[in-house]
């Protein structure tokens, strides 16, 4: 498979006088495959948001390089093409909607690309349909719930027809219902439309649908692998300032007690099946 993102030896340091004068991101090497679903986990200040902003040139590397679909972020003439290919959704749902009407906000990106009005209309309608917000297309954004606002923000990115979407803690400010809406929508985008998804979060539960889980701590990657690989290393997760989902916590303790379970199941149903299997197997 082809890589959409190539990161080589990336280091980024904020200006010396800022409180985070140590390197926010240090010596990162990372490739992201086209069409994959990657979750990047880390506590606040682990460097994960800085990494996100380095991906589309909002920040430029102090050392090393980032390229998106072969385009280097340091080359200024690439920047619009990179931002079109790699869309970004942020944490605060209120602060990324520009216009006063939902459908006009979704049109904002394509309008900046200078597309024909008929093409913009087509893309806006289809993006709203994809995130299931068509019935709110004339609504004022401030009347929507947090989850709906984030879906509008997603539609605004989709209308630019990106190949990759990076979401920086998109659910941190949402209630459980909104969180579910957003996670379901991005999972669908990945599975049905083949869009590469990079989800940055500190909710480990959200890693459930990921092909690949990356853990960041102090600006470095401390784990990288499948959900099972990463979640079975509980020591590493606690050290990275993260909390195991309760289901995984339960499975890990059972494993320590000698039960034959693999502690990588997040949903209650899957975890229960795993426990059931171990109990019935009678391997104690």
């Amino acid at each position: 498979m082809q890589n959409i993102i190539e990161i080589n030896n990336l280091t980024f340091q904020y200006d010396g006088d800022s409180p985070n004068s140590s390197a926010a991101v240090e010596g990162i090497n990372l490739q992201i495959e086209k069409g994959s679903f990657t979750v990047i986990l880390g506590h606040n200040g682990s460097g994960k948001s800085t990494l996100a902003k380095l991906l589309n040139g909002l920040l430029l590397p102090t050392e090393g390089s980032v390229s998106v679909d072969g385009l280097l972020t340091t080359d200024e003439k690439n920047i619009f093409e990179i931002r079109r290919k790699l869309g970004m959704v942020f944490q605060n749902p209120d602060n990324q909607i520009v216009c006063t009407v939902v459908e006009e906000d979704v049109a904002f990106g394509p309008e900046n690309l200078g597309l024909e009005p008929s093409e913009i209309r087509k893309r806006v309608d289809s993006a709203l349909e994809t995130v299931d917000m068509t019935e709110y297309r004339f609504a004022a954004p401030d009347r929507l719930s947090g989850g709906q606002k984030q879906r509008v923000a997603l539609a605004g990115i989709l209308a630019m027809e990106p190949e990759c979407i990076v979401l920086d803690e998109p659910t941190a400010m949402l209630d459980p219902k909104g969180r579910k809406e957003v996670i379901e929508t991005i999972t669908r985008l990945n599975k049905e439309k083949g869009i590469t998804v990079i989800l940055i979060t500190h909710f480990m539960e959200e890693a459930e649908n990921a092909d690949r889980v990356i853990v960041m701590d102090s600006g470095k990657i401390t784990a990288d692998g499948s959900l099972f690989d990463v979640f079975s290393n509980t020591g590493l997760i606690v050290n990275a300032g993260l909390a195991l989902p309760q289901s995984v916590e339960l499975l890990s303790v059972l494993k320590q007690k000698g039960f034959n379970v693999k502690p990588g199941y997040i949903s209650p149903k899957a975890a229960a099946k795993e426990i059931y299997r171990a109990l019935k197997g009678g391997t104690l």
């Binding site: 309760q246 289901s247 339960l250 303790v253 209650p268 975890a271 229960a272 426990i275 059931y276």
Partner: peptide, 28 residues
Amino acid sequence: PVVTKILLELKALGLNVNTKAFTPAQAI
């Protein structure tokens, strides 16, 4: 709580488990 849900699922699978547990320690 998630652990309560897991116990309820176990019960649904046919195990005779006490579902009154709301923290991982109780569930274990």
